[in-house]
């Protein structure tokens, strides 16, 4: 087990190297550079700036290969550089904004898991009952509603009818948990809806599949009650696909937060990266992508370890 984890962590190194090269190249390949962005920004307020001077100042006058190695040397020393447009290091931006995104994502995942697993089990236990049909229809509706649309509706109508809007100024959880949660709960619930639809259906299908297995018949023949059969047998055995799915939503947590962060004005990293991309803030985008990549790979490792825990037949060698 420990050996396996060490092996997987070592495999992170080449993967991160590849990510560094790819993101660096991709950033230079997008039409329009940081220099253009800066020149445009100043000319729009009537200030003429010397393009070459800006380029030299940003270190973008050197050949791309040199730029890469200069940046990469810093990266392996743990320094992700400074933002081109904000007077901050990439580190400090990440440190301030990643936790915000994580909070949103974790609340979303907790909500969707806590709602979808019991409902999926309930549907499976009462297959084809009225309740099952109603819940499945609701799941389909949740799945089909575009999240940006429902979020817009949720922002617009309460505001029009009751003059209510969720707080738009970010307050840290530790400072004022109630106000903080007020800001996060609605966007988290909205992004959880789509996941609830999907996860509920998956849990239902998987549980039904397991309920047909011989060992479930054995469980009934032992006189175990429905609760034990459902949780000890059906749910325990349908865990692997459920873990895969939850792992998937954990790793896509950052990307998925962009819409909600923008709509609800939450100062998270998703919103930051999109802004950095359009202003061509090379170090910021590159730094964020490296962190995201490591995050996704670590989550995948955690998921694999969870498999072992969920199913003793899984071998991690």
């Amino acid at each position: 087990m420990v050996k396996y984890i060490i092996k997987r962590v070592l495999l992170l190194i080449p993967a991160v190297l590849l990510v560094c090269i790819t993101v660096f190249l991709l950033m230079r390949l997008i039409p329009g550079s940081a220099v253009d962005a800066i020149v445009y920004k100043y000319s729009s307020i009537g200030v003429e700036v010397d393009e070459d001077a800006v380029r030299a100042q940003l270190g973008l006058d050197k050949p791309a290969a040199i730029q890469f190695f200069v940046w990469f040397k810093d990266v392996i020393q743990g320094n992700l550089g400074d933002s081109l447009f904000q007077n901050k290091s990439v580190h400090s931006i990440l440190a301030a904004e990643l936790p915000v995104t994580f909070e949103l994502g974790i609340i979303t995942i907790i909500l969707s898991t806590v709602i979808s697993i019991p409902l999926g089990l309930l549907c499976a236990a009462r297959q084809d009952s009225g309740l099952d049909i109603i819940l499945r229809v609701i799941a389909i509706i949740f799945l089909s509603i575009p999240v940006f649309w429902i979020a817009t509706m949720v922002l617009v109508y309460p505001a029009a009818w009751w003059g209510y809007a969720p707080p738009a100024d970010y307050v840290g959880f530790l400072e004022n948990p109630w106000k903080n949660l007020q800001m996060f709960l609605i966007p988290a619930l909205l992004s959880a809806l789509g996941q609830v639809g999907m996860q509920m259906r998956l849990v239902r299908t998987q549980t039904l599949e397991v309920m047909r297995q011989d060992y479930v018949r054995t469980a009934w023949s032992k006189g175990l009650n429905e609760r034990t059969v459902l949780f000890g047998y059906a749910f325990r055995n349908s865990m692997i696909p459920t873990i895969t799915m939850i792992g998937g939503s954990v790793s896509s947590l950052i990307g998925g937060s962009v819409i909600m962060e923008n709509l609800f004005n939450i100062p998270g990293i998703g919103k930051e990266v999109v802004a950095a991309l359009s202003s061509r803030d090379y170090p910021l985008v590159q730094g964020c992508v490296i962190i995201f990549a490591i995050y996704v790979m670590v989550i995948n490792l955690v998921v694999d370890i969870c498999y072992k825990w969920a199913d003793p037949r899984v071998s991690l060698e």
């Binding site: 297995q213 011989d214 018949r217 469980a219 325990r236």
Partner: peptide
């Protein structure tokens, strides 16, 4: 009244 089944490999809960 107890019962035993045909396929022992599938009649036992694999994760317990």
């Amino acid at each position: 009244i107890s019962m035993i089944f045909q396929e022992p490999s599938s009649a036992l809960n694999p994760v317990v």
